[in-house]
């Protein structure tokens, strides 16, 4: 009890600091941006790939801009808690957030959350994490063709795990059935670790999984064997793995995750410009690339327009399915 008593004031101070940071942002002119602490929200829990990416970028923004960047995890509501906080903040560049197609497109389409993709100002893409359709080491399916043939021979007989109920991976498998008549049974899990365990134990036949660093380790060790990649072109680090497009399944390129940086709608142009330029500079630094994972940082910087394009494309495809 003694220890906890001494920690309470510290926590209160931290909380007070957080509140102060967002309260008095409005009065500063945009010309001298930034002149105070920047709050950078992560709509997911600490420790995952989103958190790692945001903290890496946040640390670089801090040193480039010369102001403290406070990274804050606000998990919950499939990203809606943090995003609600973002769209409600003053558009002054002192409240920013990580955004994904999941938090900006899927969640508002699936639930009544009171915001849409229009309510943010995109700044740029921080990282792209592709998905792979993968099987276990002892799987009977040695290649993508084997797998597709087995599914087509007996629709619904093959169980494929996805990381959650309304995730891009789940919708992608639904589109695979709707648009290309390849019908698997979608089994939602809770995150990558559960899926990997189920795959290794033979409790699912395959997974469509975000190829984040925890998964690439299992790919390297041979426990997880990738068959198909979700990217538009073959992944540089998996040159032997074909894409859905190559196999004739046009349009199945949306199951990867794009981690974007965004502010509230109506961010002043000079503030957005400063942030976009700084983000670009950060993503060119070797240290940042290494921390995020070299294979996840886009080869060519995708700025505000690039991020907007990804979100809009996803919106157009998902709206008829979910809306």
């Amino acid at each position: 009890m003694r220890r906890s008593a001494s920690s309470a004031p510290v926590l209160l101070l931290l909380a007070a600091g957080g509140l102060a940071g967002c309260g008095n942002g409005a009065d500063s002119g945009s010309g001298d941006y930034p002149s105070e602490d920047i709050r950078l929200l992560v709509p997911y829990a600490a420790g995952g790939p989103t958190d790692l990416t945001t903290r890496t970028v946040g640390g670089c923004l801090e040193s480039e801009l010369g102001e403290t960047v406070v990274v804050e995890n606000l998990p919950g509501g499939s990203g809606a808690l943090a995003t609600t906080e973002l769209v409600g903040a003053e558009p002054d560049g002192y409240t920013l957030s990580l955004v994904t197609a999941g938090t900006m497109v899927l969640t508002p389409l699936a639930n009544e959350v009171g915001y849409t993709v229009e309510d943010i100002t995109p700044i740029g893409v921080m990282a792209d994490v592709p998905s792979v359709l993968a099987v276990g080491a002892e799987s009977p399916y040695a290649s993508a063709e084997d797998f597709v043939a087995a599914v087509e021979a007996e629709p619904g007989s093959v169980d494929v795990g996805v990381p959650g109920a309304s995730t891009p991976q789940g919708i992608e498998l639904q589109r695979w059935a709707d648009e290309h008549d390849v019908e698997v049974t979608v089994v939602p899990f809770d995150g990558n670790a559960e899926m990997t365990a189920a795959l290794r134990g033979g409790n699912v036949d395959a997974v469509l999984i975000n190829a984040s660093q925890d998964v690439t380790g299992n790919i390297d060790s041979g426990d997880v064997v990738p068959l198909i990649a979700s990217s538009e072109e073959r992944l540089a680090w998996l040159p032997d793995v074909p894409t859905f497009t190559e196999l004739g399944f046009e349009g199945l390129t949306l199951s990867g995750s794009t981690f974007g940086l965004a502010g509230p709608a109506d961010l002043p142009d000079d503030v957005a410009g400063t942030l976009e330029d700084t983000l670009q500079a950060c993503l060119e630094s070797d240290e940042v690339r290494e921390d995020i994972g070299e294979q996840y940082v886009p080869e060519e910087f995708a700025g505000a327009d690039g991020l907007a394009q990804v979100l809009d494309e996803t919106q157009q495809v998902y709206e008829p399915i979910l809306g």
Binding site: V113, A165, S166
Partner: peptide, 18 residues
């Protein structure tokens, strides 16, 4: 949210309850 379909249950459209 329902863990399989993603539908909200007893959430009354409150983000906090998702």
């Amino acid at each position: 949210q329902d863990s399989i379909t993603g539908t909200g249950r007893f959430t009354f459209d409150q983000v906090e309850l998702f």
